[in-house]
């Protein structure tokens, strides 16, 4: 079964980094309403099987476009650039230094259960995460990776996004557990 590989096309979104989240959710739910296996529970086994495949594909498409890092990775894939998240290393020395300082601040605040410090760190990380996403969006022109964008910079930007996402998630759960 060959399914639409371009998740932007499938989800009715322009192929750009900024997505209309409300429209994305609406489109996702409209398609699930039509193609979810529940709609085929009383139909032939073949239809049921196809519905499971298509519905799973829709779930993947939504999860991909809904998450900044996955969305960025998918955009690069569509442009012929593959990212190996596990084996990619960032080579920007300024960023690496910042990253170590942020980590230290995080560890200190966690050790002291310092909620105000954690919250301020959270805001700082998210601001950087946002900025990084804007950097990534700027690398594209008219759905295409712009000619001036060099591959190393593209990979580094996605790597940074991944770092900020992870830190932001850790901070969120730590802050929640402390405010209980």
């Amino acid at each position: 079964m060959k399914l639409e590989h371009n998740f932007f096309t499938l989800m009715g979104q322009a192929q750009q980094f900024t997505v209309d989240r409300a429209a994305l959710k609406k489109r996702f739910r409209t398609l699930q309403r039509e193609y979810h296996p529940d709609r085929f529970a009383a139909k032939t086994p073949q239809e049921q099987r196809l519905a499971v495949q298509f519905s799973a594909h829709l779930n993947t498409a939504f999860a991909t476009l809904d998450n900044p890092v996955k969305r960025a990775t998918h955009m690069l894939e569509l442009s012929g650039v593959t990212i190996d998240h596990q084996n990619s290393t960032i080579k920007d020395p300024v960023f690496l230094m910042q990253q170590m300082e942020t980590r230290e601040a995080f560890d200190d605040a966690r050790a002291d259960n310092d909620l105000p410090a954690l919250e301020s760190l959270f805001n700082q990380v998210n601001t950087q995460f946002q900025a990084c996403q804007q950097d990534f969006a700027a690398l594209f022109e008219a759905s295409q990776l712009s000619a001036s964008a060099d591959e190393k910079k593209v990979r580094d930007t996605v790597g940074k996004m991944q770092f900020f996402e992870k830190l932001s998630d850790e901070l969120t759960s730590l802050i929640r557990s402390l405010t209980q």
Binding site: M1, L3, E4, T9, G12, A23, E34, Q46, L50
Partner: peptide, 23 residues
């Protein structure tokens, strides 16, 4: 033998939803 056919029809209906129609 109808698997591919069914997939194309599904594709077509998804595309139809995008052409000339808004969400």
């Amino acid at each position: 033998v109808t698997d591919t056919f069914a997939t194309r029809r599904m594709d077509q209906s998804v595309r139809a939803a995008l052409q000339g129609k808004n969400i």
